[in-house]
């Protein structure tokens, strides 16, 4: 469903070239939830943005549903894929109500029956009609992230890209959102990529995980094998050990 082949992304900041992603390749099959883990700055978001077409990329490095896609995409190509961003406080337009936010994609694609669809999309993510005409600043972080998920799903995409959807949230709210994502990906038969710096979150939702470090994909493995400690790379093992909590033994001397 998604094929990434030798994807490289370089940002130019002044005269300095930052190689954010280096030759990353992987494929995600239909219906799969693929995980990407790595520390901050390792290029996870950049990979996701390149797949989404938010960054200029060489045309043949990203293929979706068998077709090569670049950054310029048609409206129907756009509709295939949606995105949930990390920071629920920054991903909703501050001057628009939930109703306006959810109506916008329907208006862009000239879909009829918007009123009912918006109501259903809200119910789908566990929000009621009382939230429909509120502004983002009148919602909690968890509620905002639900709105963002509703916005992503209202166009009925086949692919959902999730960029640290819960790292700005409390554990209890994180549990609700992760459960919601798990339920919706079944109900909508979604293919998805989940990015997180938290190995536990990725392991909870995904079957296969890519580990990224400094722009490169260092290891690709099954969660089962990760659990059994069969990681090949030292970096992956270090990440796993650190995620299990602090231990005196590994502390610096």
């Amino acid at each position: 469903m998604i094929e990434v082949a030798a994807l490289s992304v370089t940002f130019h900041v002044g005269h300095v070239a930052v190689r954010a992603v280096r030759e990353v390749s992987f494929a995600v099959t239909e219906g799969e939830t693929f995980g990407i883990v790595g520390e901050s700055g390792s290029g996870k978001s950049t990979v996701l943005r390149a797949i989404a077409g938010l960054l200029p990329t060489p045309r043949d490095s990203v293929r979706i549903a068998g077709r090569a896609v670049g950054a310029r995409r048609t409206r129907s190509e756009r509709r295939l894929l949606q995105f949930v961003f990390q920071d629920p406080y920054a991903s909703l337009h501050p001057r628009q109500t939930v109703d306006q936010i959810l109506n916008e994609p329907l208006a862009i694609h000239k879909i009829a029956g918007a009123g009912a669809l918006v109501g259903r999309a809200l119910a789908d993510v566990g929000l009621g009609p009382e939230h429909r005409f509120r502004y983002p600043h009148q919602l909690s972080g968890g509620q905002r992230q639900r709105v963002a998920i509703a916005r992503a799903l209202i166009l009925d995409p086949r692919i959902l890209l999730l960029d640290e959807p819960t790292s700005a949230l409390d554990v209890s709210i994180q549990a609700e959102i992760l459960n919601l994502i798990a339920r919706l990906r079944r109900a909508h038969r979604l293919t998805s990529i989940l990015v997180s710096h938290d190995l536990a979150v990725v392991a909870h939702l995904c079957d296969r995980i890519a580990i990224m470090q400094e722009g490169s994909l260092v290891e690709l493995l099954d969660v089962e094998r990760l659990r059994r400690g069969e990681a090949r790379e030292a970096y992956t093992r270090e990440l796993l050990r650190a995620s299990r909590g602090y231990s005196r033994a590994q502390a610096p001397a």
Binding site: R49, F83, F85, A90, H109, L155
Partner: peptide, 10 residues
């Protein structure tokens, strides 16, 4: 991100 979101909506 909210502008990226509408770009992605087409």
């Amino acid at each position: 991100d909210y502008i990226a979101a509408v770009v992605l909506q087409g």
